[in-house]
Write a protein that binds this DNA or RNA. Structure first.
Lengths: 194, 194
DNA sequence: GTCTATAATTCGATAGAC
DNA sequence: GTCTATCGAATTATAGAC
């Protein structure tokens, strides 16, 4: 009951802040950082452009606030080891289609160094953390990187570039094809020549 | 010997055109379409910005000219079937590190619809053509799409976002890890649930 | 807390001299 | 064939009225 600071009354500005953030995520996701203008974001949030500056300081500050993202990965070591690929691919597909922030990040990370750094942090920290206790610590980062290469490639071709054959696959087919790849990157043997 | 129009004398402007194209590829590859300015491209080519307009009409026209790309894929059906994954991953790594145009395309395809269309065309046409006679024609596009998802994911994480574990892998290790994935997408059995 | 007005840049594109 | 000068539009960001 006292877990919240219990503001004497809900500030009216909270709704505005949230509306700005929602609009920002939508515009950044659809157009990327450069093509998204503060004016367009404000228009979508139905507020004045200057409010964006007031609340977030600058366009970069707004993006930083909009680009917070939790992959919500479970601890992989506690799941059935032979189903990890399937579970992980399914989890990412759900996460991707339920929150457009990830698409915004990918779009932006290709041109903005700041967003690329955020992307590196998200995958390095969250994915590596989720893999704790799963693989040899020396190899864990490498395996996480390989998983990221397939997962992000799937996102790029399905949600960003929209390559027709990848778009047309339904989630079950996608899982069936891609899960073995992720499974091998996670738990497969280290190749001889590596 | 008569395969070329044999211009009476080499036009001086050819060198300028080539310099512009080279600079454009470099800027587009480094910064993407939006952040690349005609002024910056002209400065890098050490010519006047108005020359860019004169030769290519507009910024979009310049990009279209700079984004021509041949993956130079061999006919896969004529190669040893069980080495296709390895050969293809190696080919793409070489192609990617030898020509920055591909990186420019990926960077730009994430924000520019025109560049995304170009990307779809390149992978749909060239990759599907290279796979002629390799797989059931009904399944070929799907398999090509899956290959693209892994190859483009590799490019995204290694050359664009620069995820440290993926950057640190040397080409031989990368081939050893990723080739089996591509091999399965190309020649593996269709999964049961698909 | 919200909006108007505008400053300060920057860019793509054009016109025209040489 | 190359360059100077500049237009017109769009942007981020600021100052200040209400």
């Amino acid at each position: 009951m006292t877990s919240e600071p219990a503001p004497t009354r809900a500030r009216r500005s909270d709704a505005t802040r949230a509306a700005i953030l929602r609009a920002a995520r939508e515009r950044f996701a659809a157009d990327g950082y450069d093509r998204s203008t503060i004016r367009a974001i404000a228009a979508e949030a139905r507020i004045d452009p200057s409010m964006v500056m007031r609340y977030y300081g600058s366009k970069e500050g707004l993006f930083a606030a909009a680009a917070e993202f939790d992959l919500r990965l479970p601890a992989l070591a506690e799941l059935p080891r032979e189903q990890l690929g399937e579970l992980l691919v399914r989890h990412f597909l759900d996460r991707w289609e339920g929150d457009e922030t990830l698409a915004a990040l990918v779009r932006t990370a290709t041109t903005s160094p700041g967003a690329a750094e955020r992307m590196r942090a998200i995958f390095a920290e969250q994915l590596t953390a989720a893999m704790a206790g799963l693989a040899d610590p020396t190899e864990a980062p490498r395996r996480a990187g390989l998983v990221a290469s397939q997962i992000l490639g799937l996102a790029l071709t399905r949600y960003i570039i929209r390559l027709p054959p990848v778009v047309d696959l339904d989630p079950a087919e996608l899982v069936a094809w891609v899960a073995p790849t992720v499974q091998r990157y996670l738990t497969g043997p280290t190749p001889a020549s590596a």
